[in-house]
């Protein structure tokens, strides 16, 4: 039996252009993210990182290949999109509670406090700065106690203090329970600092820890 986690094989993913022409975006990608493992995807923008993440999330089934989750049941997904994607008409706290399978206010408040958002729990998302909104999106993804955590440029527009805060929270979350994490970033230093494996999608080469 394969190791627990996500097993992704993309033979071909293409998108249709404005004139109906077909562009291949991803070809022959084999990616595994084990439970308890953190994999970072790096590469220049436009190389298909987000496309691969959407396939990993199960949001895009329009590709040839396979997406298999090895585990007891379907994974619970914690997703942080490139944009915060909060519900502007629900409070910060409500945004988190609504994403949870069953509302868990204690966990929601704990995560908000850890991300320095406790004072803004009842605020409308529209009143937050982009950096705060991003932190809410991260709190939301962690609040579902995910098995599979997907982070798409989740650290963009955050100041170093908050990046450190989130990195510490992630490290703690990984210690508590095994999560398969896939992080998309263009920050190579951060990828190397956080991840067990760094995959450069442009070069299509996996760098082993020994190569760092």
């Amino acid at each position: 039996m394969a190791a627990l986690g996500l097993d992704l094989h993309v033979a071909l993913k293409s998108v249709r252009g404005a004139q109906g022409e077909i562009h291949p975006v991803l070809r022959d990608i084999h990616l595994t993210v084990g439970l308890g493992e953190m994999v970072a995807l790096i590469g220049p923008s436009g190389c298909g990182k987000t496309s691969l993440l959407r396939i990993a999330a199960g949001l895009d089934a329009d590709f040839t290949g396979s997406r298999i989750w090895h585990g007891a049941s379907a994974p619970r997904l914690g997703m942080v999109f490139q944009e915060p994607r909060l519900l502007a008409w629900r409070s910060v706290r409500q945004n988190i509670l609504l994403a949870q399978p069953a509302p868990d206010p204690a966990l929601a408040d704990q995560l908000l406090a850890r991300l320095d958002l406790a004072a803004r729990a009842e605020a409308w998302p529209g009143t937050l700065s982009l950096g705060m909104a991003r932190r809410v999106a991260i709190a939301r993804a962690l609040a579902v106690r995910p098995d599979l955590l997907l982070l798409d440029e989740a650290f963009a527009s955050l100041d170093p203090d908050n990046v450190a805060r989130i990195e510490a929270l992630l490290a703690e979350t990984w210690r508590d329970r095994p999560i398969a994490t896939l992080l998309v970033t263009h920050d190579r230093a951060q990828a190397i600092r956080l991840a067990d494996r760094v995959i450069d999608l442009a070069a299509l080469s996996a760098l082993s820890p020994a190569d760092r």
Partner: peptide, 10 residues
């Protein structure tokens, strides 16, 4: 985008 968010959180 919000529909996708709702979908991803099931």
């Amino acid at each position: 985008n919000l529909a996708e968010m709702a979908q991803s959180f099931a």
